[in-house]
């Protein structure tokens, strides 16, 4: 009774997820419905990503899990431990060593390669959901390629705030066809989505899987006179000195003093050790 199948899920469930992944790859940006199962972690805590990883991992894989860019955040640890227990595979903190990376809210700073797969945890896969709550309606909009509502929303932002007031989960258009939610990554990460690795998105509670094959065209929605801007804090990392990474702001004393550090902890550590080596 204590022995679970490789990667927890039974084979029939894995096949169902695998078929959805393949259709997702064949129709980039389209949300494939799948019969998500209850996993041993709560819905909203990465069950979609966990199911995709479970259907994807092989015994030879080296697995990395990040949450907010960091390997040692509690939920990343919990998911990594789960897979160690149910697959026995190797795990790593190092982006370059990993073959499968499961992420919540970030894309690693290190460019991914053709031999890697990036699995995203997605809370609300429908980019139109907060504009139109009914699934029956949003499905029609995708079928008809009717995305006027989204542009109206972005335009209203501009007329109200002078800028598009979306800073994360910034919608993208895939290969000129489907508008897609990139999961709640900061918009700083959006340009990285045209990458060499395979990207698979899993939304467990909402029962959707979607995917981007390598080098798929991914364009952040914008207007000619208000072009998309991948913004970040206007600082350098106070630990490694990087100027082109996404930064977290940390309050360090009672006076509200703050510093800025890389959200990608593996990248930051690599920069530090590189700096150390060159100074020796």
């Amino acid at each position: 009774m204590n022995e679970y199948n490789f990667a927890y899920l039974d084979e029939q469930t894995k096949r169902m997820i695998r078929r959805a992944i393949l259709k997702g790859l064949a129709i980039p940006g389209y949300q494939v419905p799948f019969a998500s199962r209850e996993m041993p972690m709560p819905y909203g805590w990465g069950t979609g990503g966990v199911q995709v990883s479970a259907a994807t991992l092989t015994p030879e894989d080296i697995f990395k899990v990040i949450d907010q860019g960091a390997d040692d955040t509690t939920n990343a640890i919990s998911i990594r431990k789960f897979f160690q227990k149910v697959t026995g595979i190797k795990v790593t903190d190092k982006t370059i060593d990993a073959t499968v990376i499961q992420t919540r809210h970030r894309i690693p700073e290190t460019s991914l390669t053709e031999d890697q797969i990036l699995v995203y945890q997605v809370p609300i896969p429908e980019p139109l959901r907060f504009l139109e709550p009914y699934e029956t309606e949003t499905r029609k909009m995708h079928a008809l390629e009717e995305y006027g509502l989204m542009y109206v929303k972005l335009y209203e932002d501009i007329s109200r705030h002078g800028a598009i007031a979306t800073s994360y989960a910034y919608p993208v258009k895939v290969e000129g066809r489907y508008v897609m939610d990139p999961s709640p990554i900061p918009k700083f990460d959006n340009p990285k989505m045209e990458m060499a690795a395979i990207q698979i998105f899993g939304a467990g509670r909402e029962q959707r899987i979607y995917a981007l094959p390598p080098y798929t065209q991914v364009v952040s929605l914008d207007f000619d006179d208000y072009p998309f801007e991948a913004s970040k804090a206007d600082h350098v990392c106070d630990i490694c000195g990087s100027s082109d990474t996404y930064l977290d702001e940390v309050i360090v004393d009672d006076q509200g003093g703050r510093i800025f550090v890389c959200s990608d902890t593996d990248f930051c550590a690599a920069q530090q050790s590189a700096a150390l080596e060159s100074s020796e």
């Binding site: 709560p42 709640p184 900061p186």
Partner: peptide, 17 residues
């Protein structure tokens, strides 16, 4: 309950943006 309680998880990257 899963989705409700997931807001306990860190969201500092999105909050930062």
């Amino acid at each position: 309950t899963g989705f409700l309680e997931h807001i306990k998880l860190p969201h500092y990257v999105d909050f930062q943006s």
